[in-house]
């Protein structure tokens, strides 16, 4: 039973992943990628990682939907009205990636994998939580800092109007000059 689910989802994940670069429409490409992630998440659920599997589903849906918006903004031909190709060096890329796959597959099948050590914990989620947040919170601190730096950097990069545009050259305005007013009475 588990094997059947795994195989179905694995084939689905690979097929959806391949579809990302085959379909004409950007919206379809985004949702093909999402499908690939969801299939992978089901496979992760098979590995008794309930939290991580569900987390992947949650994160990826949000990411992909946001991605779709950017896609409409910036991409050529988002709806796939005209079939077109946006590739360069297709043959080379195909050769490199096929080679990579053959190499990895050979390694996977030829290596003698070690036997499993230790027993799985009763609650994998708790194990993860303790690893992330345990004694020194090292992982969490690093990830948190990275995410924080990302937030600052992305806002700085994507921002068009700075605070002098909004509050005046002397920052003298109490109410910022925004094109559309927000809801907190500013």
């Amino acid at each position: 039973m588990q094997l059947v689910v795994f195989v179905v989802c694995a084939v689905g994940a690979v097929a959806a992943g391949a579809a990302v670069f085959r379909v004409d429409s950007m919206a379809r490409a985004t949702f093909a990628l999402l499908a690939s992630f969801v299939f992978v998440a089901v496979d992760v659920l098979l590995l008794h990682l309930a939290y991580l599997g569900v987390l992947v589903i949650l994160m990826m849906i949000m990411e992909m939907v946001v991605m779709a918006v950017f896609m409409i903004m910036y991409m050529m031909n988002p709806a796939g009205l005209m079939p077109m190709s946006m590739m360069h060096n297709r043959r080379g890329a195909l050769a490199i990636s096929a080679g990579t796959f053959v190499l990895l597959a050979a390694g996977i099948l030829l290596v003698r994998w070690p036997a499993r050590r230790g027993a799985p914990p009763a609650e994998p989620t708790r194990q993860l939580g303790e690893a992330l947040m345990g004694s020194k919170m090292l992982v969490m601190m690093v990830l948190g800092l990275a995410l924080f730096a990302t937030m600052v950097a992305t806002v700085v990069l994507a921002q068009h109007r700075g605070r002098y545009d909004r509050y005046g050259d002397e920052l003298e305005r109490r109410v910022p000059d925004d094109p559309i007013r927000g809801g907190v009475g500013r």
Binding site: M75, M76, P78, M82, P83, S85
Partner: peptide, 24 residues
């Protein structure tokens, strides 16, 4: 057309003879 980068776009028009563009 929607979202096309102009560099690519202008190139395509001015020469007018790109196969894929004609097809599109």
């Amino acid at each position: 057309e929607h979202g096309e980068p102009s560099g690519y776009d202008v190139h395509g028009h001015e020469h007018g003879g790109h196969d894929d563009r004609a097809h599109e």
